[in-house]
Amino acid sequence: MTHRLNLVLLALALLLGGPFYWLLIDNHHAPAPAHRIDIAALRQLAASQAGAAPSGVEVECAGFRRVPGNLMVAGSGIKRKLVCYMAFRLPVPGGKPVMIESGITAADASTGGAERFNANNQARIEAELDLAGLILVTHEHADHLGALAAHGGPALMDKTLLNPAQLPPSPFAARLEWKAGQVPPARLPGNRLVVVAPGVVVIPAPGSHTPGAQMIFVRTGDGREFLFVGDISSFAQNWQEQRGRSRLVQLFFAPENRAEVFGWLAAIRDLKALVPALVVVPGHDFEWLLDPKNNGGMVIGFAHRGS
Rank of each mutant, 00 (worst) to 15 (best):
143 D>G: 05
115 E>Q: 14
255 P>E: 13
216 I>E: 00
101 E>N: 15
86 M>W: 09
203 I>P: 01
210 T>H: 04
35 H>V: 05
131 L>R: 15
192 R>N: 10
72 M>S: 12
165 A>G: 04
185 P>S: 14
251 L>D: 12
183 V>F: 13
304 H>V: 00
100 I>P: 11
99 M>V: 11
123 A>G: 12
14 L>Y: 04
293 K>Y: 03
168 P>L: 08
80 R>F: 14
114 A>T: 03
78 I>V: 15
282 P>Y: 11
111 T>K: 15
132 A>H: 10
149 A>M: 01
73 V>T: 12
101 E>M: 09
171 P>Q: 10
126 E>R: 10
3 H>V: 14
75 G>S: 07
82 L>W: 05
184 P>Q: 09
229 V>H: 10
128 E>F: 07
84 C>I: 03
192 R>M: 13
208 S>E: 03
151 H>T: 08
192 R>F: 07
254 A>E: 15
305 R>T: 14
78 I>Q: 13
44 Q>K: 15
98 V>Y: 08
301 G>V: 09
143 D>N: 14
27 N>I: 07
60 E>S: 07
277 A>V: 02
266 A>V: 08
294 N>L: 05
261 V>L: 12
303 A>R: 12
306 G>L: 09
111 T>S: 10
303 A>M: 03
103 G>E: 00
223 G>V: 06
132 A>W: 10
53 A>W: 10
99 M>R: 13
290 L>W: 07
242 Q>K: 12
75 G>F: 07
178 W>E: 10
23 L>H: 05
250 Q>F: 00
209 H>W: 09
22 W>Q: 06
44 Q>E: 15
102 S>M: 02
186 A>R: 09
89 R>P: 06
113 G>P: 04
24 L>S: 04
126 E>F: 01
20 F>R: 00
116 R>P: 00
298 M>R: 03
243 R>C: 07
222 D>L: 01
265 L>T: 05
16 L>N: 04
86 M>S: 12
149 A>F: 00
89 R>S: 07
78 I>A: 15
211 P>C: 01
96 K>T: 05
152 G>R: 08
20 F>S: 03
61 C>Y: 03
220 T>M: 03
169 P>C: 04
303 A>W: 02
5 L>G: 01
220 T>W: 05
2 T>K: 15
259 A>H: 11
295 N>M: 04
82 L>V: 10
231 D>W: 05
67 V>N: 10
22 W>I: 06
153 G>H: 06
265 L>V: 04
160 T>K: 12
102 S>R: 08
275 V>P: 02
226 F>S: 00
233 S>G: 06
269 R>F: 05
27 N>Y: 02
215 M>H: 01
62 A>M: 11
294 N>H: 15
250 Q>R: 04
251 L>H: 14
197 A>L: 02
183 V>D: 10
100 I>V: 14
272 K>L: 03
203 I>N: 00
213 A>H: 05
163 N>K: 00
131 L>P: 00
69 G>N: 14
278 L>Y: 11
247 R>P: 12
58 E>T: 02
292 P>N: 12
98 V>I: 13
127 A>V: 01
213 A>P: 00
16 L>V: 14
225 E>I: 01
211 P>S: 12
293 K>T: 12
277 A>Y: 06
82 L>K: 15
106 A>D: 04
230 G>E: 09
184 P>F: 10
188 L>A: 10
20 F>I: 06
142 A>M: 14
148 L>Q: 01
60 E>W: 02
89 R>K: 13
186 A>L: 11
197 A>D: 09
